[in-house]
């Protein structure tokens, strides 16, 4: 199955191609500028749905358990992702808390919910209500989901504090690591294959 249109246009140089059928995992490249035109998804819809449900579980764990715990002369302190966002919400720098809240909590959460909604209906052979709106929102969300950066940030914070205090990674960190990988797997362009199904059913 390829995307339903006969034509593929390179988004980086406007070159026009006729779509060719691809095997899963294969990608077509633009001959003019070298950009990827279309990558045939490796995962089927049901597999993507399964990963989305896993991601939803990991999201709950990543946000309800502390990512790091520190202890210092008998005192201990733990921070969850939400508390880190709150740490930025003070005084003049409050807008930064909103940016962090969107990039590490809200955007991934919305991605998971929308994917679950769209894939769940698609696996049942239906078109999800609000299909177009959900697909457009997903597309706009993608650049603002920064979990992998957050993961690296946590590792840097661990090393930064590790020289002065004793630092223990929490359950939240492991869940976040898995969530970051899952989001990369499910939030790519592969969801665009739903457009082809949508066109076939309407």
């Amino acid at each position: 199955m390829t995307i339903a249109t006969d034509w593929i246009i390179c988004e980086h140089c406007d070159t026009l191609y006729r779509a060719v059928p691809l095997q899963p995992g294969q990608a077509s490249l633009c001959r003019r500028c070298g950009a990827v035109l279309w990558r045939q998804p490796r995962l089927g819809l049901q597999q993507q749905l399964a990963l989305t449900i896993t991601a939803a579980l990991m999201f709950v764990f990543a946000n309800s358990f502390p990512v790091i715990t520190i202890s210092f002369e008998g005192l201990a302190n733990a921070a969850t992702l939400g508390e880190s966002v709150k740490a930025l919400a003070q005084g003049q720098i409050t807008p930064m808390a909103a940016v962090m809240g969107v990039t590490v909590i809200l955007a991934p959460l919305l991605q998971i919910l929308l994917l679950f909604w769209l894939l769940g209906h698609a696996c049942g052979g239906r078109v999800a209500p609000g299909f177009k709106l959900c697909m457009r929102t997903l597309e706009h969300l993608r650049p603002w989901s920064m979990l992998e950066v957050c993961l690296l940030g946590i590792l840097v914070a661990i090393i930064k504090l590790g020289s002065m205090l004793s630092v223990h990674p929490g359950i939240g960190l492991w869940a976040l690591a898995m969530l970051a990988v899952l989001i990369i797997l499910i939030s790519g362009k592969s969801v665009q294959q739903l457009w082809a199904l949508y066109e076939a059913r309407t």
């Binding site: 520190i70 210092f72 002369e73 302190n77 880190s84 930064m96 957050c150 914070a157 205090l165």
Partner: peptide, 24 residues
Amino acid sequence: MLDVLVVALVAALVQFRSLSTVEP
């Protein structure tokens, strides 16, 4: 965005009142 996230995390963690604090 890395540095923003590191500062947020460290500030959220290191809150031991009079002993030590980190603020953005």
